[in-house]
C-alpha cells in the first residue's frame, strides 16, 4: 500500500514526501544539496558528522537531516548563513586534523573531504594544533588503514556490522585520540570483503592491490558480472592500459554495491602469466597447445568410448558454483540427456 503523501517546505519551496522519510531523503529527491560525510546508503543514520544540520521552524536546536523524520507542515531551511558558517567550521575542524597530502592520496579526486574543502575554499585554516600521528595498519594483503586520514564517520564500522555481520572493527579510545581499530589492536583478521573500503569517503581505507595503479576516476570503467559464483554480482572493472587495476560495484546494482573478497580483490588471475588461455592436449607425455575444436572433439570421443565400453553410469558430472543458474541447468541437461546418467552433482552441496 502506498503511503499517504505529506507536504512540507524546504527553503521556502513546498515539497511532497512520504511520512516515513527523513529530511535528507526528501531534500535529495528534490535536488536540494545537503553535505554529508557519515551518511551512507543502506546504513542506519549515525548523526556524527553534523554537516547535515538544518533549521526547522519552531525547534530550538538545529537537527540532523539524516536522522530526523519529516512531518507535515515542517518548514526546513538548509541554506541559512548560520548553517553555512557552522558547516565551514566543522570542515575546518576536520582539516585541522588532516594531513593535506592529497597529491599522494589514492582518493584524491574521489574524496568527500577534499570536495568540501574545495567547496568552502578553506585553504589557510585559523585552527592549528595537534594532528593525529599516522597509524597505518598494513598487516594484510588487501586492506590498508591510515588512521591519520580517518574522519571517524563510522561508515566502515557500520557496514561491517550491519551489512556484513562481522563486526571486525569498532571505535577505540576517547576524545581526540578516538580511532577505528580491531579488538585488542590485533591484526585485522576478517573476511576481507572490502566493504569498508567501498564505504570510506576519504583515503583512510584503501585497496592494497589497487595502490598507485591509477585513481578510480583515471581509469576506464567496464561493467561486467563477477565470474566467481552464481550470485552474479555486478562488477565495474577499472581498466588502465588494457589492464584491470581495480574493481568497484555500483550501489544501484542488485548486489547494492556489496562484494566479497573474491569479487573485490580476486582479479589478478586475469593478467597472470600462468593463466591457461588455450586448451592443451597431452601428447607423448607433453602438454601441447591445441585448437578448441580439436580439444572438444577429443573429449567427446573419449566420452563415447567410455559409454560404449563401460556403460553410461560410469560417467558423472560435477558442476561449479561459478556457473550461473542457466549454465548449471544446461550442464545437468548435458549429463542426463547426452551422457545418459543421473550422476550429476554440484560443488555447493559438498
Amino acid at each position: 500500500m502506498e503511503e499517504k503523501k505529506i507536504y512540507l517546505s524546504i527553503n521556502g519551496k513546498e515539497v511532497a514526501s512520504a511520512p516515513s522519510q527523513t529530511i535528507l531523503e526528501v531534500a535529495r529527491e528534490n535536488k536540494v544539496f545537503i553535505p554529508t560525510l557519515c551518511d551512507c546508503q543502506n546504513l542506519s543514520p549515525f548523526g556524527a558528522c553534523r554537516l547535515c544540520l538544518v533549521e526547522v521552524a519552531g525547534l530550538p536546536k538545529l537537527v540532523p537531516a539524516c536522522s530526523t523524520p519529516v512531518a507535515a507542515g515542517m518548514k526546513i531551511r538548509t541554506d541559512s548563513e548560520k548553517i553555512d558558517q557552522y558547516r565551514r567550521l566543522i570542515v575546518e575542524l576536520l582539516l585541522s586534523d588532516h594531513e593535506p597530502d592529497c597529491m599522494f592520496c589514492e582518493k584524491a579526486g574521489d574524496c568527500l573531504l577534499q570536495d568540501l574543502a574545495y567547496q568552502y575554499g578553506l585553504k589557510n585554516s585559523r585552527l592549528k594544533g595537534e594532528r593525529r600521528a599516522a597509524l597505518i595498519d598494513d598487516s594484510n594483503p588487501f586492506i590498508e588503514r591510515d588512521n591519520s586520514k580517518c574522519i571517524l564517520c563510522g561508515r566502515c564500522v557500520r557496514v561491517c556490522d550491519e551489512v556484513q555481520g562481522v563486526s571486525a572493527i569498532g571505535f577505540i579510545g576517547r576524545g581526540f585520540q578516538t580511532r577505528i581499530g580491531t579488538p585488542f589492536n590485533r591484526k585485522l583478521n576478517c573476511e576481507f570483503c572490502g566493504q569498508c573500503i567501498a564505504s570510506c569517503p576519504v583515503g583512510a581505507l584503501t585497496s592494497k592491490p589497487a595502490r598507485r595503479k591509477g585513481r578510480k576516476w583515471q581509469t576506464r570503467w567496464v561493467k561486467t558480472i563477477c565470474p566467481y559464483c552464481g550470485c552474479g554480482c555486478n562488477l565495474t572493472l577499472h581498466i588502465k592500459d588494457n589492464e584491470i587495476v581495480g574493481v568497484h560495484s555500483d550501489s544501484s546494482s542488485p548486489n547494492e554495491g556489496y562484494l566479497c573478497s573474491k569479487g573485490r580483490f580476486g582479479y589478478e588471475f586475469v593478467h597472470h602469466p600462468d593463466r591457461l588461455q588455450f586448451p592443451l592436449i597431452r601428447k607423448g607425455g607433453q602438454l601441447v597447445r591445441a585448437e578448441w575444436y580439436e580439444a572438444l572433439r577429443l573429449v567427446a570421443t573419449k566420452f563415447q568410448e567410455i559409454k560404449s565400453r563401460h556403460g553410461n553410469n560410469t560417467l558423472a558430472g560435477l558442476s561449479s558454483a561459478k556457473c550461473t543458474n542457466e549454465e548449471n541447468y544446461l550442464f545437468q541437461k548435458f549429463v542426463r540427456a547426452v551422457l545418459g546418467t543421473n550422476n550429476v552433482d554440484h560443488c555447493a552441496r559438498l
Binding site: 548523526g47 566543522i90 594544533g129 571505535f171 576524545g175 578516538t178
Partner: peptide, 19 residues
C-alpha cells in the same frame, strides 16, 4: 576533562574541544 571523556563520535566535540 571533556576531551578525556568525549566519545569521539561527532566532530565538534572531538576536534572542537581539543582546539
Amino acid at each position: 576533562f571533556i576531551q578525556n571523556e568525549s566519545c569521539g563520535k561527532c566532530i565538534p566535540c572531538r576536534i572542537g574541544t581539543k582546539r
